[in-house]
Simulated assay, not measured.
Amino acid sequence: MIIDAWAQHPTRRHLADPIFDSLRRWTKIPLPDEEPPVRTTVALMDQAGVNRSLISAWVAPRNIMISNDEVAGFVAQAPDRLVGVGSVDIARPMDAVREIRRCVDELGFKAIRVLPWLWEAPPTDRRFYPVYTACCELGIPFCTQIGHTGPLMPSEVGRPIYLDQVALDFPELVIVGGHIGYPWTDEAIAVATKHEHVYIDTSAYTAKRYPAALVGFMRGHGRSKVLFGTNYPMITPAQALADLDALGLDAEAQRLFLGDNACRVFGLD
């Protein structure tokens, strides 16, 4: 079982947003002429043996790149393969809480994701706290980005150490920090070790680019704390999984990393 903990089935406006210009310079991914079909995402999952992908909405200040309803529509086309992750406008806290409830109760989503760099605010900002409360009440994980940003936005808000305070304030909140926290991966490992419900996912990095400290964590006491992710379409599942064997994970650690941890964290059947 392989679960991709961080992916997007993109809309054309998501791919074309100017905020990703810096990424396009090195990924060389061409802009599609029309909306990408869900079958393309599923075919790339099949190519790499990925069973399920958590696909996320993208809500930014005054800009919805991928809406929650669009994500629900994508999931409806491949319900056995795609799992919805919602997003909300943290500048409107009560609307955000109501939308989180709709995402879970009506759309069947399994998590909420908000990216600090999009809002230029750390996860300790007061605007995030209603989101954490709603996630706790509904029993779903809060997913976010940790580490530096590829887009030309401030990276400091992605310092993993901010999640230490969030986990202290909301000890029952399940937190998944995506993108391994580089160049502060040691911080990410420390916070995930300290707090029972804090996890790391490896999205946006191929296996051969995982820092040595993270690989050691995955081999040892952190084997139940790291989830496989791609950040597709930036990295395809096959690219993300290439060189997996070079990590030197034993059978249990590999099984936990590729799927079992995500199944447990997101409550997947």
Rank of each mutant, 00 (worst) to 15 (best):
I3L: 15
I3P: 00
A5W: 02
R13G: 08
L15Q: 15
P18R: 11
I19H: 09
D21N: 14
S22A: 15
W26C: 11
T27L: 14
I29Q: 13
D33A: 14
D33R: 15
P36F: 05
P37T: 07
D46T: 06
Q47M: 08
G49T: 05
N51G: 09
N51A: 09
R52P: 00
S53H: 01
L54A: 00
I55Q: 00
P61S: 03
P61K: 03
R62M: 03
N63A: 05
N63G: 01
N68Q: 05
D69S: 11
D69I: 04
E70G: 02
A72L: 07
F74C: 07
Q77S: 10
Q77E: 14
R81P: 04
R81Y: 07
V85D: 01
G86P: 01
S87I: 04
R92V: 05
R92P: 03
P93Q: 10
M94S: 13
R98F: 08
R102I: 06
R102T: 07
V104D: 00
E106R: 13
G108L: 09
F109K: 01
L115E: 11
W117D: 06
W117A: 12
L118Q: 13
W119K: 02
P122I: 06
R127H: 06
F128P: 00
Y132S: 04
Y132H: 08
T133Q: 13
A134Q: 03
C135P: 02
E137H: 11
L138Y: 11
F142S: 02
F142E: 03
Q145A: 15
G147Y: 00
P151H: 13
E156D: 13
V157M: 09
G158W: 01
R159H: 14
Y162H: 15
Y162Q: 06
L163D: 00
D164A: 11
D164S: 11
Q165P: 02
L168G: 06
L168K: 10
F170P: 03
G181N: 04
G181S: 09
Y182Q: 08
Y182T: 09
P183N: 08
P183K: 09
P183R: 09
A188G: 06
A188P: 00
V191C: 05
H197K: 15
Y199H: 11
Y199K: 03
I200L: 12
D201H: 05
S203L: 06
K208I: 09
P211M: 06
A213Y: 04
L214W: 02
V215S: 07
F217D: 00
F217R: 01
R223N: 14
S224C: 13
K225V: 10
G229Y: 00
T230K: 01
N231R: 12
Y232P: 00
Y232G: 00
I235N: 12
P237M: 07
P237E: 03
Q239G: 09
A240I: 02
L244H: 06
A246S: 14
L249F: 09
E252D: 14
E252W: 08
R255V: 04
L258S: 02
D260K: 14
N261H: 11
N261R: 10
C263Y: 08
C263R: 15
V265L: 12
F266N: 01
F266L: 12
G267M: 12
L268F: 11
